[in-house]
Design a protein around this nucleic acid. Structure first.
Lengths: 205, 205
DNA sequence: TATCTTTGTGAGTGAATATTCACTCACAAA
DNA sequence: TTTGTGAGTGAATATTCACTCACAAAGATA
């Protein structure tokens, strides 16, 4: 395997375990109290140490958010890679990919919040960048699977690859949004998989 | 001030022209600087008068946001009502409805931001309520049109009414999101209508 | 003319905010 | 034994926040 295999080139933003804890706490606060609740004070309270200690691990509040988005992007990339199998038929590949992603969000609901909260940063440039990168990651993994399904005539060619991806992402984003504003009240894995089946019903030849 | 906002009882929250200007400015700021950029100071700067003058027209910052959401909900409702025609065939009704909505957002891009920004308020109760109401409004108008299309066998019955609506809303929300982070760089009416055609291709019998 | 009413202002206020400061302290390497 | 370090602390900082209030200009009204 080449050292420069596409999927592996993301640089290891080495994150300490403490930093990860803080990122988790950030997510938790965002989940419970929204954007305005995310203050260093609340973060310190959640971490059960002083406000100043936060700055031992991050240079600024913005950095925390950006690091969180990067971490999420990397983690999702890993999930997509892990769920990839050469053996399955292309439709099962899609089912597997989506299911794994749903399970991840079920287990880490606070990340569901972050994906939708734009306007998190004053300097929205870097945030948009990070959010964009998350969307691109998903697209990167989805694209070949859709293409394969189309080429074996399992999915329709009435819509382009890109259009089908948009459809999928739109439906899932909305479902995640509903999940979130419901207070994570239902089983996102179950409902999410149902939505996928719905779409497959439509795009299957 | 009693708020019995069942679907039909839209009380005329009489809004002055000055208030509307402030609401517009609010949307503009949200678009450009995100949630954290929305301060009374910035609002005053945008309005080109003093901070205290804002309080001549609204009692609090929260009130501005809530009033903005109400105004948006009412305006959208009006648009839906205006676009409704008894004569058209059910598919054209859908095309018309979506097109009118797209045109509205094209002309008022800053409102496109608001729809996605939850966590706008600390006291998120009323805001979430308002956002929920906007989504319900759309659903209220979409539902009978979808149902009619299904009942005349123009749209598939493989998916329920609700599932088709979810599909539509998901696809449009994502498209609006892309529009927004692109800096409103493309013609949302054109692309949006294309997306609708895509979906119709799939759900048409 | 005299007096409301509306809409603006400038100068404040206390609270909250992110960030910095000087400082401990346990621990480990030299 | 000395020295360096990572990880914590409480107090202090400057800034920003939403909001208040006494006051003024200008119409409308009486």
């Amino acid at each position: 395997m080449s050292e420069y295999s596409l999927t592996k080139i993301r640089m290891q933003t080495k994150i300490t375990s403490r930093q990860l804890e803080i990122i988790d706490a950030t997510g938790k606060i965002l989940t419970e109290s929204g954007v305005n609740g995310l203050t260093i004070k609340n973060l310190a309270k959640e971490m059960q140490f002083s406000e100043s200690a936060i700055y031992r691990h991050f240079n600024s509040k913005n950095e925390i958010i950006i690091e969180m988005l990067h971490y999420l992007a990397e983690t999702l990339d890993d999930i997509y890679i892990a769920s990839y199998s050469h053996d399955d038929n292309p439709e099962d590949k899609l089912l597997q990919l989506i299911n794994d992603k749903l399970v991840f969000f079920k287990e880490n609901p606070h990340f569901a919040v972050v994906v939708f909260s734009d306007g998190l940063l004053e300097d929205s440039l870097k945030a948009n960048e990070a959010i964009h990168s998350i969307m691109m990651t998903k697209q990167k993994h989805l694209r070949p699977i859709i293409a394969e399904n189309q080429s074996v005539d399992n999915f329709t060619n009435d819509l382009s690859e890109e259009e089908i991806i948009h459809l999928l992402m739109g439906v899932f984003r909305l479902q995640m949004f509903k999940w979130r504003i419901s207070g994570f009240d239902f089983d996102i894995v179950e409902i999410g998989n149902k939505r996928l089946k719905n779409i497959i019903t439509l795009i299957k030849k």
